[in-house]
Computed example of a mutant assay.
Amino acid sequence: MEFITWAVVVVAVLAVILLAAWRFFTLRSKGTSVILRELPQNGVHGWRHGLFRYNGNKLEYFKLRSLLPMSNLTLDRLSVTLLDRRDPVSDEAVFMSKGVKVLHIQSNDDHIEIALNTHSEMAFTAWLEAAPDARAEHTLNARDFNRFRPGKDTRKNR
């Protein structure tokens, strides 16, 4: 019985190590470093280091100290609004790099702060601004689509 217990423990430890290694090596090379916290928070509490990975209209956030094989948070570009941009306060500057800006965003009803360096902030705002405006989106009906087909003369006979 003791052998079975040790075997189960060894298999569990190996599984955790493999999962951690897989997550570390696959995400580290494909992500953007970020520090994120969900609001409301008091003081400097709630900040978590992690990675952003852009995936089309989705932004996936992976916590640095998590073993989940999927993202810990997913943001949809069409639901994200940039509310404010600020410098870190003195207590936050202790664990953040120089040149970091803190962005306050809203996604649906969730308020989130993200700390990004200059290049990451530029990439994030470019990704955000590239979203199509929901008011401008419309679908063309078949009649409108056929009107603009290549090779079709759209001028009326005179």
Rank of each mutant, 00 (worst) to 15 (best):
E2G: 12
E129K: 11
R37K: 14
N108P: 00
R149C: 09
R23L: 03
S107G: 00
E129A: 06
V8W: 04
V44F: 10
N108D: 08
D144Y: 04
H111Y: 09
I17T: 12
P150N: 08
A123W: 00
N42A: 13
A115Q: 02
I112D: 01
G151L: 09
P40H: 05
A136T: 07
R53E: 13
T32V: 15
H119C: 02
R65P: 00
I114F: 01
L39Y: 04
K63H: 14
R143T: 13
F25M: 08
N146T: 04
A7Y: 02
F148M: 06
P69T: 08
S29N: 12
W6G: 02
F145D: 03
Q106A: 05
G50W: 05
E121D: 02
A12W: 07
R155G: 04
W6L: 15
T26M: 05
R143W: 05
Y61P: 05
W127D: 03
V34Q: 02
G31S: 12
V102K: 01
K152Y: 10
T5H: 06
D91L: 08
A136L: 13
D91Y: 04
E129L: 04
M96K: 03
A20G: 09
I114R: 00
D91H: 06
L36T: 05
T125C: 06
T125H: 00
I105G: 02
L67F: 12
F3G: 05
V100N: 03
R37A: 11
G46M: 08
E2S: 14
T5W: 08
S66K: 07
G43D: 13
H45R: 15
D153V: 07
L64R: 15
D153Q: 06
P132N: 07
D84C: 06
V8A: 14
I4R: 12
L73M: 15
R53I: 15
A136F: 06
T26I: 06
L59W: 09
